[in-house]
């Protein structure tokens, strides 16, 4: 009887954990640095730098020069995707968030990051059938200063 109760408790616990988990990428705040590289994000092209933002120890990633391409595989599948970006991007730096929904090497949608001379946040929901093989990209293709403090990708869509 005790074993059954334990099993039921474990199942409830696991199911509630799964229900609470909404993030689709690791380290949305670019906080984890392994030396000069981000631990959770892959630098595919260009140069990045760890920079302080509003607080000396709350970091962001500066995309230095152009082009710069960071990527990370999706943690799991999702029926839709919410993109939340906090950034300071000079006009002309042309920063975009992109996704390859099924990992076939083709970008399926692109969200441009707003230009601003101070940090601003933007939120966008995208209708997308994301597979667990999907890949998210942060791309900078123009010259100018671009610091991204947070790129949260979740399935907390409003539809």
């Amino acid at each position: 009887m005790n074993r059954v109760a334990l099993l039921v408790s474990l199942m409830i616990c696991l199911s509630s954990l799964a229900a609470c988990e909404t993030d689709l990428v690791d380290d949305p705040g670019f906080q984890l640095w392994c030396g000069e590289k981000l631990c959770s994000w892959e630098l595919e092209e260009g140069e990045i730098r760890k920079v302080p933002t509003w607080h000396t120890h709350d970091y962001g990633v500066e995309l230095v020069g152009a082009p710069v391409l960071l990527s990370q595989g999706a943690q799991r599948s999702a029926p839709c995707v919410r993109i939340e970006v906090t950034s300071k991007v000079e006009a002309g730096a042309m920063v975009t968030v992109e996704a390859d929904a099924d990992g076939d090497g083709e970008v399926d949608w692109t969200v441009p990051v707003d230009g601003s001379d101070r940090f601003v946040s933007q939120v966008q929901d995208v209708a997308l059938d994301l597979s667990y093989e999907g890949v998210f990209y942060l791309l900078k293709s123009g010259q100018g200063e671009a610091v991204v403090a947070r790129l949260r990708v979740s399935d907390e869509c409003e539809w």
Binding site: G29, Q31, L32, C34, C39, H55, T56, H57, D58, Y59
Partner: peptide, 17 residues
């Protein structure tokens, strides 16, 4: 006090200012 995880060891670090 800012409590954030800044290393891959899974622990938070406390920064005082």
């Amino acid at each position: 006090r800012l409590y954030v995880q800044t290393t891959a060891d899974g622990k938070q670090t406390k920064y005082r200012e």
